[in-house]
């Protein structure tokens, strides 16, 4: 059979939305809502500057797992409150961001470390590689069940902070951070004001795995090489965690940016999740770019998008490039 050129912009995803998708996630949100947040905030003088205070934070999440994070806030002497809140959600292998540069731009910025990430891995630690396929045959114990909720709980943490304007809370990340931007904006559509998602991962899992041999999706290929008889169970589980099924729930404006030669998160899946959004949305595509998704140029666009919707008060200052 002759090889065919890829046409990612015309790709149509075959991901199905389970009939009980909403019930599944509403049930989990209700379950975690019964768990006291127990937020803790510890000032870290060593990481703080004249402009920004840095805190290590903690909160309780699903299954009683304790979640860590960084919280960076402009000093009142630098910029008086209230501040817009901004969740910075992490990539698959990268360390959770210490979002000082975002705070310098005027955001009260939370660097989320969902379960399994360093400092949130005492009770849950499937490892890397491993997270993507941990209990992948069972939606009720699959790794991303708690992982997605942990990011949502960071929104709850933001809502406990009096210095944050609760009507201006955004979310941003790339790769897995792009996925968490989508799932958090969907599951907390009552709160999230806007989202910027780069190279979104965890969208069209099985289709992505068929299009690439790059990690992390290669973990799925490896798992199914070893256990081909489990493919149906894997597919059933993943439909509950697929960004394509969260996308229609988003109400806030979204910026999505993708690389057209992304071997990690194939561009087909980026187009598909963008097309599944019914909100106000913008797509930026970067020619010849891979998993960087054009971040070298795109960061200025992201900053402008977030500033437009969240209106931070600080003078312009470049944030760190968001990595997947």
């Amino acid at each position: 059979m002759p090889a065919t050129e890829r046409s990612p912009e015309t790709f149509v995803s075959s991901v199905q939305r389970p009939g009980d998708f909403d019930d599944f996630w509403n049930g989990l949100l209700a379950e975690v809502g019964e768990i006291p947040l127990n937020p803790t905030v510890e000032h870290i003088p060593m990481r703080s500057t004249d402009e920004v205070d840095v805190y290590e934070i903690g909160y309780d999440s699903l299954d009683g797992v304790r979640i860590a994070g960084w919280y960076c806030v402009p000093k009142e002497s630098y910029l008086p409150p209230p501040y817009p809140g901004l969740l910075i959600v992490p990539g698959y292998v990268s360390e959770p961001t210490l979002p000082k540069s975002w705070a310098k731009q005027g955001y009260a910025a939370i660097g989320v470390a969902p379960r399994g990430k360093l400092r949130s891995n005492d009770q849950f630690n499937p490892g890397y590689p491993g997270l993507l396929v941990h209990n992948i045959v069972d939606k009720n114990t699959y790794s991303y069940r708690g992982f997605y909720i942990d990011a949502c709980r960071a929104v709850d943490f933001a809502l406990t902070r009096s210095e944050i304007d609760h009507s201006r809370i955004g979310v941003h990340g790339s790769s897995q951070g792009g996925a968490l931007t989508i799932t958090t904006a969907a599951l907390r559509s009552d709160v999230i004001t806007c989202g910027a998602a780069g190279a979104p991962y965890l969208c069209g899992f099985m289709e992505a795995a068929a299009l690439t041999h790059s990690y992390p999706y290669e973990e799925i290929n490896e798992y199914l090489r070893l256990y081909p008889e489990r493919e149906r169970q894997v597919r059933e589980t993943l439909e509950y965690f697929d960004g394509n099924n969260f996308a229609p729930m988003i109400k806030a404006p979204m910026l999505v940016y993708i690389g057209l030669e992304d071997d990690v998160c194939p561009p087909e899946t980026g187009f598909a999740v963008f097309n599944a959004m019914n909100c106000e949305k913008t797509l930026h595509t970067a020619e010849n770019c891979a998993h960087d998704a054009g971040a070298f140029w795109e960061m200025a666009e992201i900053e402008a998008f977030l500033a437009k919707h969240l209106q931070p008060g600080a003078p312009a200052h470049r944030a760190e490039t968001t990595v997947g």
Binding site: A3, T4, E5, R6, L211, D263, E287, C289, A290
Partner: peptide, 28 residues
């Protein structure tokens, strides 16, 4: 541009080591 950069460096290494260049991104 990661696609271009990845391919260029892959090709340099492959040429030095006597192997065929391979792109991580499958164009077809």
């Amino acid at each position: 541009r990661g696609g271009t950069d990845n391919d260029s460096i892959d090709a340099w290494l492959a040429n030095q080591l006597g192997r065929e260049p391979m792109s991580k991104f499958r164009r077809t």
